[in-house]
Every structure is written in C-alpha cells, then in structure tokens.
C-alpha cells in the first residue's frame, strides 16, 4: 500500500487506533466512527490531529456537528464499483464546507483517481504500488471537463469561445 497526499507520495502521519487501545500522545490518529462519536467532546480538545474512518453505508450527516474538530475523514471503497463514497465526499465539501483531508481507502485504483480527486478527495491509500507511480499521469489524463467539481478546474462552458456563426448545415 502506498500513500499519496495533495498529489505527492508521502508518509502517512496518521496511526489507526483500535477501539479498545489508548490514544498515543502527540500522534495524529484515525479512529472508527463509533469511538469518535462516543468520545467526540473529549477529542475536541486533543492537541494532535484526529481523523475518523467512516463507512460508506452510514449517514455522513452524523459527522456534520464535529467537522471543525476533524483533521481527516477516511471514506471507503469496499469495491471500486461501489460509488457511495463519491456522494459522501461531495456532500462534505459542498454542503458542509469541510476543508480537512479527505482520504480514499479500500479498492483505490488508478482508473478511479481522477473521479476521486474531482469529488474532493485529497489523500489516497493506493492498493497497488504500480498505480501510485502513475498518479500524476492518471489525474492529468483529461484537460477538459464538462461539469464543475470540487477540484475547481475550469470547465468547458467557462473557457470556450463563442461558436462561429451558423453555417448552412453541418
């Protein structure tokens, strides 16, 4: 497994902590949803960053009151064909204005990187090493986009010139 953050290969600073384990001091942690919600009040004052691992079949709305205290949210792709986390990501970015790390986990493959990036993901736990090497190619495969999205690249409607005057027929 390889980790890419903000477009670059990186060391994952977060440690996954089991529900019954104590929190290591001064280390960024990723907690399960259950643990995070149970301890949310106490965790709000923790100095080191706190992230949550959120399943794709649980309402993302439950996290809304806590977003200010979350440095990272890890969303799941149990199979790469299961696209529920794309909706969760977009809701977090657009509806709840979440600005922290959004991490893709599970079946995170090369041919989905661009979709994920455009849905608002900024960190990737990449299943295959070879795919990680091609991260930059994969997310620059396209230079033209029809719909606006979380990565704020310009869309066709905004950049193209007015069409040439109507011809007889095409």
């Amino acid at each position: 497994m390889r980790f890419v953050k903000d477009g670059r290969a990186a060391e994952d600073p977060y440690r996954r902590v089991a529900d019954d384990a104590s929190l290591p001091d001064g280390v960024p942690v990723l907690l399960t949803g259950e643990r995070f919600l149970a301890d949310a009040a106490a965790l709000a004052s923790r100095a080191a960053p706190v992230g949550v691992i959120w399943p794709n079949n649980r309402e993302i709305e439950e996290l809304a009151p806590h977003l200010a205290h979350l440095a990272a949210i890890a969303l799941a792709f149990p199979t790469f064909r299961d696209g529920r986390a794309y909706s969760q990501a977009r809701l977090l970015r657009e509806r709840y204005h979440y600005r922290g790390e959004l991490r893709a986990t599970g079946q995170v493959l090369r041919d989905q990187f661009l979709f994920m990036l455009r849905a608002g993901f900024t960190a990737f736990e990449i299943a295959k090493d070879g795919d990680a090497d091609h991260f930059a190619d994969a997310v620059h495969r396209y230079t033209r986009f029809y719909q606006p999205s979380a990565d704020r690249r310009p869309v066709i409607a905004a950049v193209r010139q007015p069409p040439t005057p109507q011809r007889k027929s095409a």
């Binding site: 790469f80 696209g83 794309y86 977009r90 661009l114 719909q147």
Partner: peptide, 13 residues
Amino acid sequence: RQHLTLHPEFSFL
C-alpha cells in the same frame, strides 16, 4: 449529456 459525462459523483452508481 455534457453535465453527466465522466461525472465525478455519478459514474459508479
């Protein structure tokens, strides 16, 4: 068609 082509949210329904 344009809006839903390679849509980042709705391509894995």
